[in-house]
Design a binder for these strands. Structure first.
Length: 495
RNA sequence: GCACCCAUAGUCUAGUGGUAUGAUACGGCCUUGCCAAGGCUGAGGCGCGGGUUCAAUUCCCGCUGGGUGCACCA
């Protein structure tokens, strides 16, 4: 673990951003964290950015259940074929059965393919007479590990916590069809919890067992993936693109216009390019510096089974380096076909002009919300020694957890100060009142949580109803009338 | 999950087979005119369980949590 990350963890804990692993009282469970008051405010602001951007691009928010019966996950492909076959050794160690056999075959230059089904896999392993890598005897049983968290609905229905929000978002397709008056394209988005029973979660908020996911889903007519109007608006935008070709030759991302990328066939359709652009815009709207963002194309091996086009938004985290933050997938008609098959319903739309029924294609932008939140803390917390100046959380002003602090210069000014505090709260700002310790110490406290403005009530306030407003970044103070505070603050915090 | 390493106030740390050092943060009082100011003072800790021992925070085992590598991350 690097030193920066250790400093960051102390910052997040002491300043009320992130605590855990929870429940701390009982020693904690890996992969679960609690957002403290400041962390929760920060995360909310990030979620508001998501809502604003998706809404202004004609996506509509929905909220679906987090627990769904097994049949849904059989249809989506999450259950069944996509669990890991595990074999135990005499000591209780657990190994990936298919990987063990694969390695064994590779080592002995055996060309036989590794069987897919558990019983055949077990038979093949027994035939090799192999042992576990730790020298222990392997047991005669293969069990499945699934990343899905199982639960029971009522007394006996098998259910699972959703491992992604997307599948849950697709299920009301027939309702969407009516709601959007049988016309494509239409878009929906969802922000909510997802659960993955990771074998060993690490890297703090970056990989949790319970996390917040956000995703936008655009339902398209497969023959109308050109989206000329939207494409025309974005085609000249330059994006940092790390193509698969560049990765193979270990090159750097290239700054390239979307149009140029289309010519090079990096994106499969105008619509997909639109999705890429939207995802990139989203991450810049969080205030993450452009140098910390790049787009990386998936290689043929890592591309998900359902996707025709696949890129990730990656963020540079000082703690962990380049980290996947968001996937943009053209999922084609895979999901709707699967659910049509399993539910025995026709999930299509009748296109008037062509007099035909089509199964819409789905373009997906999906990401863990906790990752950009972590990135903001990781990138913008700056620790300084007392000689160097104040340690500051340099979060962009509009994302700061607390908008403004109200500080009486001395305690004898507290009545006036509390009146100003009450007024600011009623105006809808998130405010903090602090009258303990020296004024300098209180400025530091606010800098540490990124509060942009400190309103100080001094002796002049009582004479002429003015206060000073201290700006976090410039540390400059400006005297303004109390009556103008709201306008001043409103200019930073648009609502 | 495997291998190795680690675990002391909120945070960071010293140290010990006889219950613990310091810094910082925090509370109270006094002082204080924009400063990470000063004085007095207060509260706060050996992750959990078992073993060895007269005695365990210290030694041993297990668990939990963290780090690194492998695996996993659909």
């Amino acid at each position: 673990m690097n030193e920066h990350h250790e400093t960051l963890l102390a910052f997040m804990q002491t300043q009320g951003f992130v605590w855990g692993p929870a429940p701390e009282l009982y020693g904690g469970a890996a992969g679960f964290y609690t957002y403290g008051p400041n962390g929760t405010l920060l995360k909310r602001r990030v979620e508001e950015k998501i809502r604003t951007l998706f809404s202004t691009h004609e996506f509509f928010e929905v909220e679906t259940p987090t627990i769904l019966p097994a049949i849904v996950w059989e249809a989506s492909g999450h259950l069944g074929g996509f669990t890991d076959p595990l074999v135990r050794d005499a000591d209780g160690g657990v190994w990936r059965a298919d990987k063990l056999l694969e390695e064994h075959y590779a080592k002995h230059d055996i060309k036989t393919p590794v069987p897919v089904h558990n019983d055949e896999l077990l038979k093949a392993i027994k035939a090799t007479n192999m042992q576990a890598p730790n020298g222990k005897k392997l047991l005669d049983e293969i069990t499945n590990h699934s990343l899905m968290m199982r639960t029971t609905i009522g007394t006996e229905i098998e259910g699972y916590n959703r491992p992604e929000t997307a599948t849950a978002t697709y299920l009301p397709f027939l309702r969407y069809r009516e709601h959007f008056r049988k016309k494509l394209p239409f878009g929906v988005f969802q922000i909510g919890k997802a659960y993955r029973n990771e074998i060993s979660p690490r890297q703090h908020l970056v990989r949790m067992r319970e996390f917040t996911q956000a995703e936008a889903q655009l339902f398209l007519d497969p023959q109308e993936k050109e989206m000329h109007e939207q494409y025309a608006r974005i085609k000249d935008t330059v994006l940092p693109l790390l193509s698969w070709e560049q990765q193979v030759r270990e090159g750097e991302p290239e700054n390239m216009s979307i149009q140029e990328a289309m010519h090079k066939k990096l994106f499969g359709s105008n619509a997909y390019a639109y999705g890429i652009h939207l995802a990139y815009t989203l991450f810049t709207s969080f205030g993450i510096p452009e140098k910390n963002i790049r787009l990386r194309q998936h290689g043929p091996e890592e591309k998900a089974f359902y996707a025709s086009d696949a890129w990730d938004v990656e963020l540079y985290l000082p703690s962990f380096g380049w980290t996947e933050a968001c996937g943009i997938h053209d999922r084609t008609d895979y999901d709707l076909r699967q659910h049509a098959k399993h539910s025995k319903q026709e999930l299509d739309i009748f296109i008037e002009e062509r007099r035909e029924k089509v199964i819409p294609h789905i373009l997906e932008i999906a990401f863990g919300v906790d990752r950009p939140v972590f990135a903001l803390m990781d990138i913008f917390y700056e620790q300084k020694s007392e000689q160097e100046g104040m340690s500051t959380f340099n979060i962009p002003y509009e994302l700061a957890p607390v908008h403004v602090a109200v500080l009486p210069l001395q305690k004898k000014l507290s009545t006036t100060a509390r009146n100003v505090y009450a007024m600011i709260q009623q105006q809808g700002f998130v405010a903090i009142y602090d009258e303990t310790a020296s004024i300098g110490k209180r400025y530091l406290r606010q800098a540490l949580i990124g509060t942009p403005y400190c309103v100080t009530i001094d002796f002049e306030t009582e004479e002429n109803n003015t206060v000073t407003v201290r700006d976090r970044d410039s540390q400059a103070q400006e005297r303004i009338p109390i009556a103008e505070l709201e306008t001043f603050l409103r200019s930073t915090y648009k609502r």
